[in-house]
Design a protein around this nucleic acid. Structure first.
Lengths: 262, 262
DNA sequence: ACCAATGGTTCAAATAATGAACCGATAAGC
DNA sequence: GCTTATCGGTTCATTATTTGAACCATTGGT
C-alpha cells in the first residue's frame, strides 16, 4: 500500500462517534507506527484536511474537505438533486426518507428529509455507515451489486443490531433473490427496533448500483394504506432520482411501467 | 514536500472551470512527472477521492469527499448554522448573501442564499475562489489577519477583475486601516462590474479571522435606505453567526454595541 | 514522588517514490 | 494513406523518502 493510501485511510477512522482522534488512538486504530502517523497527520494538516481542535490536542477533519465536496457537487450534483426528491417523498409518505451512497466498500447515509406531518419520526444522521445485511438500503444495494461484492459483504460475521436482525448469510441471500424480482427491499426492525424501512436501489450512468433511496417509518404507523403507498411512492421517487442524475437501471431491474407502444 | 502533500495538491487543480482533468493536463499543471501523477491519481482513485468520468477518461472528484464533508459538518457545523443566517440576512436585505471561509491561503465562497424579493440578483457559485484585494470579503479578512498573512497576499501581482479593481497594494493597505476602524468592508465593482458588496469578518473560537459574511447587491439598487440597512443587518448577522459557531471577536474589533450596564 | 499516559522527535536501515524512455491506440495533419 | 503528435498507461534502475525502535518533555492520576 502506498503512502497516500495510508494517509487517506487514517481519515476513515473519523465517524460520528469519533469526530476527534488523538495521535495515540490513531496509532492504535491504524496499527501503524506512531512516528508514521504523526508525519502523515502533519502533512494532512498542512493541506487543511485535518486540524487540531484546541491548541495542541486531538485531530479533527479540516475545512478543505468542504471545498472539495462543493466541487464534487458542482460536477456530480447528486446531493442537491436528491434533496428535492427526498423532500417530495417525505411529504408524500409523511415519513423520514434518506439517500445512501456506496463509497468504496461501505454504504453511507448522506442526505435525508423528515416528515412535516408527524411529530414522532425516525431520526437520521448524515455520514452514518449502514450495514448491508441489516438495513433495507443495504439489501437493495446488495441485490443489484455484482456477486463478488456480495460475497465480500456477507463472508464476515454479520452483526445483530436488534434481535430482529437477520445474521445468517444464507437467509440474506434468499432475501436478495426476492428483492431482485420485486425491485424493492424491506427491513422490519433489522437496524433499529420498531422501524419499518423500504428501499430501492439507485443506478448510475453506467448502470451500476451506486446507492439506495429509503423510507423509514415507525412500525406502529404502517397501516395497510401506507404499505401500499410507500412502495409505490418510493419506486416513483427512485426512478425520478435516477433519471435526474443521468443514471439508468440495468435490464435486470424490474420496470414498474414497461414502455408499451400502441 | 512529502508524497501525501503532492497527491493532495493535485486535488487543488480542480475548480469550477475545471471539474474534470486528464492525466496529461494534470501533469502539465502540477509540473510533476507523468508516471508520478498517474500513480498518485491511481491511489487517490482507490480511496474514492477521485474517479474516472466515462470509462477511461479524465479524472474528477470522487464520492468519498462527500462523506468527509458530512463528518466535518458534524463536528464543526458552520455550514448548516450559516444557512439560517444567510437565509435571514438575504430576506432582510433583499439581496444575495454568501459566506466565505479561509482555507489555507485562499478564500473560498462556500455557502450562499438568494433574494426572494427581486428577480434580478447577483449570482454566486459555491467553492469559488475569492481574491483578497478585489472582494469585500477578502478585504474584511485581510483587515483582521496577521501582518505576515497580509504581506503574503499583497506581495504578488494583484489581478484587475474589472477596471474598478484596486491593484495598488499601498492603496489596499490604506483601505484595510479604514476597515479595521469601521469593522466593515466594501467593494463597488471591484470583482464584478455593477456589484456593490459589503462584508464583515467572521472570527473563530480562538479569535482568529476564519472567513467573511457578505451581501452583494446590484449597484443600481443601492438606494440611500439600502446603504443604511445593509451594513446594519450585516453587522447583526455577523455577530449572530460568530456566536452560533462558538467564536468570538478579538478586542481590536469595533463592537457595534459596547456592553454597558445599568 | 511516582507511574503511565500523552504528543512529539531522532536517525540509521529499509522501502517506496521517481523519471526518462517506451507502448499501443487514437486522432489530427498533410 | 502515410506521418506525426497526443493521449492514457507502463517499465525499471536510480534515488530519495518513509519507516520504526527508542527517546524526550509534559500532563494527569494515585
Amino acid at each position: 500500500m502506498g503512502t497516500v493510501s495510508k494517509a487517506l485511510n487514517l481519515l476513515t477512522y473519523f465517524n460520528h462517534g469519533r469526530t476527534e482522534i488523538g495521535l495515540s488512538d490513531l496509532t492504535r486504530l491504524s496499527g501503524l507506527n506512531k512516528a508514521t502517523v504523526f508525519r502523515l497527520m502533519t502533512e494532512l494538516q498542512d493541506c487543511g484536511f485535518v486540524e487540531q481542535a484546541n491548541g495542541d490536542r486531538a485531530y479533527r477533519l479540516g475545512p478543505q474537505v468542504l471545498r472539495l465536496a462543493a466541487l464534487r457537487e458542482a460536477s456530480v450534483p447528486i446531493l442537491s438533486v436528491s434533496r428535492r426528491v427526498l423532500r417530495d417523498l417525505s411529504d408524500e409518505t409523511g415519513e423520514t426518507t434518506h439517500l445512501s451512497l456506496l463509497q468504496g466498500d461501505q454504504l453511507n447515509s448522506l442526505s435525508h428529509a423528515y416528515s412535516r406531518r408527524h411529530a414522532t419520526k425516525v431520526m437520521m444522521e448524515d455520514a452514518e455507515v449502514l450495514t448491508f445485511h441489516g438495513t433495507s438500503s443495504g439489501l437493495a444495494v446488495l441485490a443489484f451489486a455484482d456477486p463478488g461484492f456480495v460475497d465480500g459483504a456477507l463472508n464476515q460475521p454479520l452483526a445483530a443490531h436488534t434481535n430482529a436482525t437477520v445474521t445468517d448469510p444464507n437467509i440474506v441471500r434468499e432475501q436478495l433473490g426476492l428483492i431482485r424480482t420485486s425491485g424493492l427491499a424491506q427491513s422490519i426492525g433489522g437496524f433499529e427496533a420498531d422501524v419499518h424501512s423500504h428501499a430501492v436501489p439507485i443506478f448510475g450512468p453506467n448502470r451500476d448500483v451506486i446507492g439506495a433511496l429509503a423510507v423509514a417509518a415507525p412500525v406502529s404507523r404502517m397501516s395497510d394504506q401506507q404499505k401500499e403507498l410507500i412502495p409505490a411512492a418510493l419506486r416513483r421517487a427512485g426512478a425520478a432520482l435516477i433519471s435526474r442524475i443521468g443514471g439508468s437501471a440495468p435490464a435486470s431491474y424490474p420496470q414498474a411501467e414497461p414502455p408499451h407502444s400502441n
